[in-house]
Design a protein around this nucleic acid. Structure first.
Lengths: 226, 226
DNA sequence: AATGATTGTTAATGACTTGTTAAACATCAG
DNA sequence: CTGATGTTTAACAAGTCATTAACAATCATT
């Protein structure tokens, strides 16, 4: 399911967590000290890190700080024995995202992990995540539009246009902006093309009554969501 | 610290959460049903939403879906009595970001909120600004005038004129200035056009009794705000 | 190489929107 | 009272948009 880095020096706990997470379908890389964890982090690129605060060689905070400076978005969860306020604050300071106090249930941990994997999908723009809007969704990496469990495979141009309108949902996008961004030039014929594609998109969106592409005469278009 | 929207129909729990979050320095907007929450969401723009799943009028999932439609990045946390797998999945499906199961400690909630606020600061794009005046507002980038939750899409000329009057609110703007700025020339016919557009604007502003476009005979116009 | 499917562009037509002009009426200043 | 200026409604022509169809280029398959 995902590649996880586990930094935990407690032999028993580490093994238990690793084992459980593997059962859940994750690929787990387990290391018992901070330095090794950092090296491992740079080699493989895990999609989430579980870090024990107290570790030999390099403590969890230091490790997190270094990771964070390298990747702005990687989710970092601290595992800690004590739930002291001070520790929590320091955890956030170095760029941690969440905190889980020992002893914790696997159910709880697994669920926290899910939350972050999911969230990161949405916040990382480059990632293959669906964009939800109205009763529909658009998947940029597959260029597919979904409404009521029916999928429409869009063409490149259709996809780019929908994506652009979606990036400015409920806001007017000027013709010139669209033409410049998608066609790279703004002449009469490209303008006619744009109109044709708007018509085609409207045909797809017809199945979702919360959506409407409105025209602002002489200015541009706006994807309205009720 | 931040503007939070709390949608929770349980009187006691709602009050308690609101109270605690206020103590932590947040501005909390508490409402007890989904419909009200949605309206409130559109008026104020909260930076995070706490939503009870089970609510009268509109359930939390529906509410979240609609919010997510309008803002791709606003953090949405569900509050729920049961931690059923199915509910959790549905929560993600409609665009929720996290889940917290009742009963929860305030410490836990507060700290989840902090994480999301921190993260969202990095990802949210800046949104366009509206100009507020009287009981109305004008959005220059969308060329829309709003009064009593009804939106009027203005034409280019109408928009330019309103914007100009607004820039000199409560001050006289000379005909020659308007004609020169908007039409680029000052002749008899453009003058007639101006008068027509003043009439059209007055029609829109009629819904707001604090507004009035006054004429100064032979000089120009003034948008008065009481 | 021939075929057919797909995709973006161009063309053509009719409908709609907009800024302007016209005209009738109201208001103001001297 | 009178001429000038402002208000309002309606009508108009130009420009813009919507929609369908035709076309050319590309690509995959045979």
């Amino acid at each position: 399911m995902a590649k996880l880095l586990l930094a935990e020096d407690d032999e028993n706990l580490g093994f238990m967590v690793q084992d459980n997470l593997k059962d859940l379908g994750h690929e787990v890389l387990w290391t018992k000290n901070g330095e090794e964890a950092l090296a491992l982090y740079h080699n493989v690129k895990p999609s989430l890190c579980l870090i024990d605060v107290m570790m030999p060689k390099m403590d969890g905070f230091e490790l997190a700080r270094k990771m964070r400076s390298h990747d702005e978005f990687i989710p970092i969860l601290f595992l800690t024995a004590k739930s002291i306020e001070e520790d929590r604050l320091k955890g956030f300071e170095v760029g941690g995202d969440d905190y889980i106090t020992k002893p914790f249930s696997m159910k709880e941990l697994s669920y926290r992990i899910d939350v972050f994997l999911r969230r990161n999908e949405r916040t990382k723009p480059s990632d293959a995540s669906k964009i939800l809007f109205g009763k529909s969704s658009y998947d940029p990496s597959n260029i597919t539009y979904e409404i009521n469990d029916t999928f429409h495979s869009l063409t490149q141009m259709e996809g780019k246009l929908l994506e652009l309108l979606l990036a400015h949902r409920n806001n007017l996008v000027k013709r010139e902006v669209i033409l410049e961004k998608i066609w790279g030039e703004n002449d009469y014929f490209k303008g006619r093309s744009l109109d044709v594609f708007i018509t085609r998109l409207r045909k797809y969106l017809k199945g979702d009554d919360t959506l409407e592409i409105k025209n602002h005469h002489g200015v541009g278009f706006c994807l309205q969501i009720k």
